[in-house]
Design a protein around this nucleic acid. Structure first.
Lengths: 363, 363
DNA sequence: TTGAAAGCGATACCAT
DNA sequence: ATGGTATCGCTTTCAA
């Protein structure tokens, strides 16, 4: 104790050289400055701002006023160190060559927006082996939880998730999801809903125009939708067929050929689970045959992410809403942070049918 | 949910119940544990790992061995607090409706990869008014610098950048870039290069098939390329024309019409600065007229981000490489962090011409 | 309802 | 070449 214990370098300078300079308005105020301005202790400031213990209305107001006036923003690092919470979620997104950019972007965006609504930021995990990134950010306590995008049926991130000491939420459902928190559209229910619409309208031969071939290996939901469609069609006793919309990405010629084939085979009800350009191609073939959607043939777009109002003719849809999935994912993450012991949840979002007049009674 | 989490479960348990349990191998070792394992002080560990002062080869090895064995990862929050560096860059990306998703995603990705190469992570700034996000992360010392994507000619983030106390780097060049660090492809040079190729090959009437109309208002580089093309064509004494490829996004019919018009008007050299589908449409019109690219007409794709090998016929390109821009951006940010006083830099990446045989000598 | 003070886990200064 | 320790700015006990 031979030295005078100065609280901070900043303070020293303040006393010695710039006694009145306080950095007001530049957003670098610290909690002790807010405390001084409000005439309370720093713990009171902390509690008043976090609401973690009751504060007299009067004190709270003074603290809030001071904080606002000084443009106080808690230091993220200090908060993380003392509070053991970073208010950051990692978002892992593997980058396969066949990734549909617009859809992917919609999910990244939705995740970011959903997180911000609950006071979280999103840290991107791309490059490196997804697993290494997850381990790195978890081990360094950089993030509070991990959100997993673009889930594969047999995803390597499942094993990592189980080994991490921070929560992980899957947006998509891996085959082995034991003990994991997951959220996704209920693709099975969506397929059932769509098939039922067609069959109820009297269609006796239905076709599914699906995603690209790789999607059925690399992603988790296309197979779920396809097998559910098949089962339901069989259960309802109608003929059914299935075609990919390309090998790795939409192949317009393949789509045109498959739709033509289907029409030749007597298909009258189409279910499309593909990208926007595949819709365009399919509708074009139908139009070229002088057939009218909603009269001669029926079409339903399933798990649609793009804006169907730009299609040449209106189409009924069962939309896949990124913001819905991401909001649930954020809630699941927060819930598990609050209670690590709660039972794991697979949250299936119920599909919603939007009519546009593309399904007509079969005569 | 009314339960309060105990602040330091680790500490409590460690002392009270499991005195020797140390969580080896699960990546939660702290610096003092590494120090003990290596038989040195914590400051030695810190220096050995950061390389900020010389360490005897022997101790360095012991420290590294201990760190590896314990799976030591420095606590991000503690490091940020003590070291005043978070190793995180914010990436702001405004989300206009006309954003070309694949290109945008390529840049986000490239930024993330480039950052990781220099030990930085990327925090996404999407939702909220871009300015508020920037201010928030800067004021809370959440990030070391900000990277700005999708720069508008008159970008609101320019003003914010000037008011922040952390560095900002623009990937794109706003009109008013005084004192700012910017990086971008040299679009002017690219246009000159392309026009020269065509004119040198004997073409006397050239056309630019540009981006969508909004892009010329909302983004910074389309106008730069367009005016440079115009000037160069005039300087070289050849006739020139310009058309958008749509209003807000590619409009295939508009593209077809404009290419047809151009051909009727005697254009023999095309410069395309548009999305992939616009290329397809343009090449289709040419093919339908029984004209052959590289013989009857010449085509150059400028500032191309997608993979042109998928086009129906090979096309010369002057590529826009996201990773190149983003790597420079990261370097600029790091350079400014190291030396806040250095002169601001507008780094123009020199265009590179890639031949594919789509430009032929005009006979 | 409030305040004082003990950490949180690193970095980097000052010694030796 | 290495070690001791003040410090970063907050959260949360413990005391009053």
């Amino acid at each position: 104790m031979s030295r005078i214990c100065s609280p901070s370098k900043r303070f020293e300078i303040g006393l010695a050289a710039h006694p009145t300079f306080d950095g007001e308005g530049d957003g670098m105020a610290r909690i002790d400055e807010v405390a001084a301005a409000a005439g309370v202790s720093i713990s009171t400031v902390s509690y008043a701002l976090s609401g973690k213990r009751s504060i007299s209305p009067d004190t709270r107001r003074r603290v809030e006023a001071a904080a606002t006036r000084l443009g106080y923003q808690p230091h993220a690092g200090a908060r993380a160190l003392a509070g053991r919470r970073t208010q950051i979620f990692a978002l892992t997104e593997p980058l396969r060559a066949d990734t549909h950019a617009p859809t992917h972007m919609a999910f990244v965006l939705a995740a970011s927006v959903a997180a911000r609504l609950r006071e979280y930021d999103i840290l991107l995990l791309t490059d490196e082996q997804a697993s290494k990134g997850m381990q790195r950010v978890a081990a360094s306590d950089l993030v509070d939880a991990v959100l997993v995008l673009d889930v594969a049926p047999d995803d390597e991130r499942v094993a990592i998730a189980r080994s991490l000491r921070i929560p992980t939420v899957f947006i998509g459902i891996p085959n082995d999801h034991d003990g994991l928190d997951c959220v996704d559209l209920d693709f099975e229910a969506a397929a059932v809903m769509a098939v039922d619409r067609l069959v109820d309208a009297g269609h006796e031969h239905v076709a599914l125009l699906g995603q690209s071939e790789v999607a059925y290996r690399a992603s988790n939901f296309p197979p779920r939708l396809r097998s559910s469609m098949r089962e339901r069609a069989e259960a309802r006793g109608v003929a059914h067929r299935f075609d990919h919309s390309g090998r790795t990405t939409t192949d317009v010629r393949a789509v045109r050929a498959s739709v033509a084939d289907a029409l030749d085979a007597g298909v009258t009800g189409f279910l499309i689970h593909a990208a926007e350009d595949a819709h365009d191609a399919a509708l074009a073939v139908i139009a070229e045959r002088r057939l009218q959607v909603g009269r001669d043939v029926s079409v339903i777009s399933v798990a649609t992410v793009f804006d169907t109002s730009r299609l040449p003719s209106p189409v009924d849809t069962i939309p896949l809403v990124p913001s819905a999935s991401c909001e649930v994912a954020v809630e699941l993450a927060i819930a598990r942070l609050q209670d690590p012991g709660r039972a794991p949840v697979v949250h299936l979002i119920q599909p919603e049918y939007r009519t546009a007049g593309s399904v007509s009674r079969r005569r």
